[in-house]
Design a protein around this nucleic acid. Structure first.
Ligand SMILES: [Zn+2]
Ligand SMILES: [Zn+2]
Length: 669
DNA sequence: AGCACGCCGACT
DNA sequence: GTCGGCGTGCTC
């Protein structure tokens, strides 16, 4: 006897399309969450079943049939469908656009001939085995933090606030252990900011839980490996997932704890595609799963701190450095050399370096600028080296003998003379790590200087080798960018010199100050961790700025409270909510024209509480020969903004030659 | 997003 | 006369 006809609602990765109805062929068994292959126009595309119904509104002649169901594993869980749907609504995209690309390619392709054997191999991975690694005794603060979290029930967002070296990781490991013990099916997500920190932490987690399957996920993984981890988590075999922001879209069978390490790190925010915040989605996911979420940081982001102050997030504080003999470094502020001086390095800094080196300790010189000089320029006519494709300078790299665009990678050779006036005396202007390295080699001829930045160590292996040399004492002076601030402890560094924080002090970006504070706290944490007190010498002409006073006391709370007060007074984020509309075109005029039209449409649709600003060129106006403009939209209340965006997005009409995207909660506004 | 359809400029 | 440029619109 023939069964009643059934229709499947299927989401696909195409903009502006909702769920599409398809006929379910007789004999095909479908459930919500099943991955399918469906015809779309002339193509066959992957899709996800979101519902099944005996009726449809779609006219019969339009209806087509589901081509195949990918039945190699259990359907996607309802919680995962809810997550991707929320992300789509919140970040203003189609459901299919958030859900389908979140699956590894392997999980959205019709199975090939080797599919079965791959699955068998993928499912064969098991725990590391061996003896569990050491379980250090928790100090009373760590123990109290764990006690509070474990005594709580259901959804509670916690901020684990602790300085570098206060033992946050040990708290994570303890909470993970307890979570896994309490429920044999429970799974944990541990998110970390950067790929190069993943293997380190992954190894530590694996060593601690040798009898459990611990898997990793990050964008450097080839798809096969990503799919293997994905499947292990989806099927509930993996108990712990360690990964970067993309891992927030993993499908969990029973998520029982979410941890976001270094939650203030900007890498949790996706810069292209669906511009989601991995940290914010982590909080949503914990809420949905009625489980705790831990946001760990020595310098929480200002939006997170606002939630602590409001009482939305609960605070756990670790004040003690785990190694008892470690003391806070002494912070000393000195005036920078006057503008136009030959070098960035002040006599004060040089003298302090001399003393530290004499005492047999290492020096870390911090400068957040790669290359020899940010630009090459002609003193006679004012010519400056610029990128052919972007509206920016090309950076002078002396060793490589190239001028390089740090935004698009375009390069060119060093011109022998000024291309404009022929003057042969073109000069590097400003200072990067390469130049400092050169200067220090001259100034300290019998000291060994090592530079660590993305140019000097491009592979993970090279980076490890460089850090090994520092640890082994084969280096006296270490010159580095951001790269040295994160994750690595240098036990014998007695002095940190911060050459030019004023570059960031002068930045107009809203978040520049708090990011600088976080960076300085991090580099300061590199000094004095092996008993003797370390020193941090900062060259700045903003010595009265409360930022440095707070830094000297390592007082994040005072700093963050002051920032919040300022933001409230100026009605800035996080007290207002923002979205940005970006337009890209061959010319700035076209991009701005699109946005001007968008403003007109918006003005008709916006309720009074939504404020629409004027279109302006993006800070980097031209990138890769594409010119860009942006438009800021703001509201005091989130729901008003979201409702407006949803409607506005539908009204924006495509224009030939103009690409547009929307970003909710932009980092830069 | 793809992909087809369609309407105008320049080549065999 | 058709080859291909991309502007426009549709996909259950
Ligand atoms: Zn010149
Ligand atoms: Zn460029």
């Amino acid at each position: 006897m023939a069964e009643a006809e059934q229709f499947a609602a299927v989401i696909v990765d195409a903009p502006g399309l909702g769920a599409l109805d398809y006929r379910v062929p007789e004999g095909m068994l479908l459930a919500p969450g099943d991955r399918v292959i469906v015809p779309l126009g002339t193509r066959k595309v992957p899709g996800i079943v979101t519902g099944l119904s005996p009726v449809t509104e779609v006219p019969a002649k339009k209806l087509r049939r589901v081509a195949a169901v990918l039945s190699d594993t259990i359907p996607l869980h309802a919680e995962w469908l809810a997550l991707t749907r929320f992300a789509a609504l919140y970040y203003q995209r189609g459901w299919g656009e958030s859900a389908v690309p979140a699956l590894p390619l392997f999980m959205r392709r019709a199975p090939g001939v080797r599919h079965e054997s791959w699955l068998k191999k993928a499912r064969a991975i098991g725990p590391a085995g061996g003896e569990p690694g050491p379980r250090p005794q928790l100090n009373d603060e760590q123990a109290e933090a764990c006690r509070q979290v474990l005594a709580s029930g259901g959804y509670v967002p916690w901020v684990l606030f602790g300085v570098t070296g206060s033992g946050k990781t040990e708290v994570y490991l303890h909470l993970i252990e307890e979570t896994l013990v309490r429920d044999p099916e429970a799974q944990v997500l541990l998110m970390v900011p950067e790929i190069n920190l993943t293997p380190q932490l992954e190894a530590r987690v694996r060593a601690r839980f040798p009898d459990e399957l611990v898997v990793a996920m990050h964008s450097d993984f080839p798809d096969g490996e990503r799919a293997r981890s994905w499947l292990a988590v989806h099927e509930g075999r993996a108990r712990v997932l360690v990964g970067t922001r993309m891992s927030i879209f993993a499908s969990f069978r029973k998520l029982a704890l979410v941890i976001v390490d270094e939650e203030h790190d900007t890498s949790f925010k996706a810069g292209d595609g669906l511009r989601f915040s991995g940290r914010d989605l982590a909080v949503w996911r914990a809420w949905k799963n009625r489980c705790p979420v831990i946001l760990g940081s020595a310098t929480p982001s200002i939006e997170t701190w606002a939630k602590v102050r409001k009482g939305d997030y609960k605070l756990l504080t670790l004040t003690k450095r785990a190694s008892a003999e470690a003391t806070l470094p002494a912070i000393r502020l000195v005036n920078p050399n006057r503008k136009g001086a030959r070098t960035l390095l002040t006599p004060d800094a040089a003298a302090a370096m001399e003393a530290t080196l004499k005492a047999g300790r290492q020096v870390l010189v911090f400068l957040n600028r790669r290359g020899y000089a940010p630009v090459l320029s002609c003193p006679s006519c004012g010519w400056v080296s610029t990128c052919r494709r972007c509206s920016t300078f090309t950076v002078f790299h002396k060793g490589a003998k190239r001028l390089v665009c740090h935004h698009c990678g375009w390069q060119t050779g060093i011109p022998p003379a000024c291309p404009k006036c022929g003057d042969p005396d073109i000069l590097p202007k400003g200072t990067g790590t390469e130049r400092i390295e050169e200067e220090l080699a001259v100034r300290f001829p019998d000291r060994r200087v090592l530079r660590i930045d993305r140019d000097s160590v491009s592979t993970r292996h090279e980076a490890e080798e460089a850090f090994r040399r520092v640890h082994a004492g084969e280096v006296d002076i270490l010159v580095g960018t951001q790269m040295v601030a994160k994750g690595h402890d240098f036990a014998n560094v007695g002095l940190v010199v911060v050459l030019n924080p004023d570059a960031q002090m002068l930045s107009p970006a809203t978040r520049a100050r708090e990011q600088l504070f976080a960076t300085l706290m991090q580099v300061a944490g590199r000094a004095g961790r092996a008993g003797a007190q370390g020193e941090v010498l900062i060259q700045t002409r903003f010595q009265d700025d409360p930022l440095f006073a707070a830094l000297a006391r390592q007082d994040y709370v005072a700093f963050a409270d002051a920032v919040l007060e300022d933001r409230r007074a100026n009605m800035a984020v996080p007290y207002v909510h923002q979205a940005m509309l970006y337009a890209e075109a061959k010319s700035l005029a076209e991009a701005e024209f699109f946005l001007t039209e968008a403003v007109e449409i918006g003005m008709r649709e916006a309720p009074p509480e939504v404020r629409i600003y004027d279109p302006v060129p993006m800070p980097l106006m031209r990138l890769m020969n594409v010119e860009r403009a942006q438009l800021l939209v703001e509201a005091d209340e989130r729901p008003a903004l979201q409702a407006f965006l949803a409607r506005w997005r539908q009204s924006l009409r495509a224009r030939a030659g103009v690409e547009w995207t929307m970003e909710v909660d932009p980092l830069e506004a």
